[in-house]
Write a protein that binds this DNA or RNA. Structure first.
Length: 488
DNA sequence: TTGCTAATAT
DNA sequence: AATATTAGCA
């Protein structure tokens, strides 16, 4: 644990403060050592193998073969890792959820490992925000390269920071006259610990912040919520269930009183709502107090949990493998299944898929951030005839993403179509440029599709990573965000 | 200081 | 939509 690799050590920072924003070569030759990697795989042997290789590349490995433990480590040790490699073989909903949460809540780069080399699987995961997908068996070299994702993340974060900063200044300037902020109890002077162009916000040194910095959002998953309920229950019978005590009783670190207060507030709201419902509709029923209907079998808390309380990072939950067709319906909000139902597609991220002769490029971008993730997927024409260009490719690809091919629009990559939505970044020329951006840490290796690859510029050439030549390709864009607008 | 609620922000 | 933050009052 000597010195962890800090983003500030990131070579791109110390290139003399040069305004060079194309970090192309900023860190060529350098290899960040000590990146903290969490590796999860159910097979201890394989885990060891991975660990060994990773360590050879100077990564600091935390291995883990129990999902529970992985969850624990990630949840309670936020900012302890720079990247996570997770096996998603027989991933059930839980693991999927876990990964989704990590990805979005902690902004931790996630790499999926799997034996499944199907296009569907790859795309599914990429769509859901993971930054890479390694197909087993994994070559050591693949492991060596994972640092690129961390680097990428940092770069992205940096640019977001800059943008955010600019926005803040604007806002400040415009409001300064109108708002005479007087008595603010808790003037939240949180400065962002973000680093713009080498300027680090020195508010509190290293400590907690790490490369995966992001404002912490508590995810009230089932476990946490159960603790909460348990605490409320316990206190409800004796003293009063107030945030402070609940917090104490929960005995979970990483959450604040405010978090609990907020949760409690919503909890109560829900209880009230449920009570009201019961009053009106089921008049025969005895009224139940919030406490009485707690977790222990009472349906209230469960309802609460299922219906409104779980934070499923929207854009990471839409793609749970599903049987489609049967639309879950109604607007009743209390089945968890509904949260992951096809309706969820409404909130899907922009995803654009570019097809050229033999390559497929998928770009993935998050909603509110100014960043995106891009991954390449090389498809060999012979092996995957379905993904060749033209109509055939189109329709099958379409079906890969949605059951409804009408949801997609077609346009040329180099002649971007501006869709009526501001968020249509995929149609943004600048984004498209990124497809050609050799610095994009894309390293999708698909043994079965070995074809055309080009090099990643800052790593020694010898093997590898390639970027797809998309020129002249087509882009099939399923306009999810358009849908989103229309449906909401 | 903490709690509560409603409003509003992210 | 889920959480966070804030205002304002107790």
């Amino acid at each position: 644990m000597a010195e962890k690799w800090d983003h500030r050590d990131f070579p791109a920072c110390d290139d003399g403060g040069s305004p060079n924003r194309d970090h192309q070569n900023s860190f060529s030759g350098k290899f960040p050592e000590g990146l903290r990697v969490l590796v999860f795989d159910e097979d201890p042997q394989y885990l060891s193998l991975l660990e060994k290789h990773l360590q050879e590349f100077q990564y600091r490995v935390t291995r883990c073969n129990e999902e529970e433990r992985a969850v624990y480590l990630l949840r309670n040790h936020t900012n302890r890792f720079d990247i996570a490699i997770i096996e998603a073989e027989n991933s059930n909903g839980d693991r999927f959820r876990l990964i989704s949460e990590i990805g979005s809540e902690m902004d931790l780069p996630i790499i999926i490992m799997s034996k499944d080399d199907s296009v569907e699987s790859v795309i599914n995961w990429m769509r859901n925000g993971v930054c890479d997908y390694l197909i087993k068996p994994i070559r050591p070299e693949d492991l060596r390269l994972i640092f690129k994702h961390v680097v990428k993340k940092i770069q992205v974060r940096r640019s977001v920071a800059v943008a955010g900063e600019a926005a803040e200044e604007n806002a400040a300037g415009e409001n300064s006259s109108s708002v005479g902020d007087s008595t603010i109890r808790n003037p939240n002077k949180r400065k962002r610990g973000i680093f713009l162009d080498g300027q680090v916000n020195e508010e509190d040194h290293d400590r907690d912040r790490d490369s995966t910095t992001k404002k912490r959002r508590v995810v009230w998953d089932e476990k946490l919520h159960n603790k909460f309920i348990e605490a409320v229950q316990y206190l409800g019978n004796n003293e009063k269930a107030v945030p402070k005590k609940i917090l104490e009783r929960m005995n979970v670190d990483g959450i604040t009183r405010e978090n609990v207060a907020s949760h409690l507030q919503k909890y109560r709201l829900n209880m009230k709502k449920l009570n009201d419902q019961n009053e009106g509709v089921e008049r025969n029923r005895v009224l139940i107090t919030p406490q009485e209907r707690g977790m222990y079998g009472g349906e209230g808390a469960t309802e609460f949990y299922r219906g409104r309380n779980v934070q499923f990072p929207t854009h990471h939950m839409n793609n749970i493998p599903q049987l489609s067709s049967v639309q879950q319906q109604s607007t009743s909000p209390n089945l968890m299944t509904q949260l992951i139902s096809p309706l969820g597609h409404r909130h899907l991220d922009d995803v654009s898929v570019v097809l050229s002769g033999r390559n497929l490029v998928m770009t993935h971008q998050h909603h509110h951030h100014h960043h995106h993730q891009t991954s390449d997927y090389a498809c060999n024409g012979e092996k995957s005839p379905t993904y060749n260009d033209d109509e055939l490719g189109f329709s099958s690809l379409t079906s890969l993403f949605t059951q409804n091919s009408e949801d997609m629009s077609l346009f040329h990559l180099q002649d971007p179509v501006m869709l009526p939505n501001d968020n249509q970044l995929s149609a943004n020329p600048q984004l498209m440029m990124n497809v050609h951006d050799t610095h994009e840490p894309s390293m999708l290796h698909i043994p079965s599709f070995p074809s055309s690859f080009t090099h990643s510029s800052f790593i020694d050439q010898k093997d590898t990573i390639k970027m797809v030549d998309v020129s002249g390709g087509f882009s099939y864009n399923n306009s999810y965000s358009v849908d989103s607008n229309m449906l909401t």
